[in-house]
Simulated scan of single mutants.
Amino acid sequence: MDTNNMFNGEMFNLNMFSKKLSNEEIKEMARDMCSGVEETHGEVRVMKWEDVLLKTRTGNITEIDTRCKIVHLQVKLQQTEEKLNETLTELEQSKEETSTCNSELESKSQQLNETLGELAQTKEDKETYRRGLENKSQQLNATETEKETTIKELDTVTQELNITNTALNQTQVELKQVKDLLEKAKDCPLNTTISSYWDLLYSTEFFGAVITSHKLEVLTKSIEKLEYFEGTRITDGIIQFFKMFHDGEDQCLS
């Protein structure tokens, strides 16, 4: 303070503000000297009464007990209690929120574990499916190989069947020729003279007997296609057929 200026009187709760206070704010301060309303203005209060009380004093200054300290303490205590209650309420809410968060976190953790289990099962199923697909591919390749082999074998069998059919057709033609010649040889007279090696069949060993493998061994060295007649009984007609067919003697057919 300026020491050249003297002040005579009482001073209490001197505050200076950086803004113009409204009429309502001034009335609120004047209503009760111990209300402490000035403290609600915060940074707008640029000079505070509690700071003035700390300044060096000169002259005859007497402090008067206004009992505002007690009121201020009561007010601050009340405010502190209100803040404490608010804090306790917020703390309780925070505990409830924390409990809710813990429950949600536990639920999320359980869901995460279930998801991880499902993911592991999915990976295992995927691997099983991959192995199954690989086996199916191998089986398919083996089947294709077997198919190609079967087709080749079928082609070979078809070729052999065609050859067999050709031989069968030729045999049927020859058999028809034999049947025709046998039919023509029915009326040939019994030949009692040996004019051909077929006359050997008139001997006791052959005539009237059935052609067997043993008898064929005697004749097949010089006679072709005699095996067609295995199981046939040797008769005069058979002998005449052999003589006409192999010797060119067809007097009975002229």
Rank of each mutant, 00 (worst) to 15 (best):
E10R: 09
Y197V: 11
E230G: 06
M47Q: 01
P189D: 10
L175S: 05
L219H: 06
P189S: 14
A167P: 04
F242Q: 02
Q121W: 01
E183Q: 10
N162W: 01
F206V: 07
R31L: 13
L14E: 03
L181I: 08
T3C: 06
G248Y: 01
D199K: 05
E227M: 02
F229K: 08
E38P: 00
H72E: 08
V46Y: 01
V71P: 02
E96K: 14
N191Y: 03
K152Q: 14
M47H: 01
S213W: 02
S254T: 12
Y197P: 11
N8V: 12
G237P: 06
F245A: 15
L168I: 09
L190M: 09
E224P: 12
W49D: 09
F242V: 03
C188I: 09
K108D: 01
Y129K: 13
S213A: 13
K83W: 10
D187C: 04
E249G: 01
A185V: 03
F207K: 06
H246V: 11
I64M: 15
K147I: 09
F242E: 01
A167L: 14
Y202A: 02
V178E: 05
Q240Y: 06
V46W: 00
Y228D: 13
T89D: 12
L84K: 07
S109A: 08
L200K: 12
S94F: 11
D236E: 14
E127Y: 08
T58K: 07
T150M: 14
V37R: 07
T40K: 13
T66Q: 11
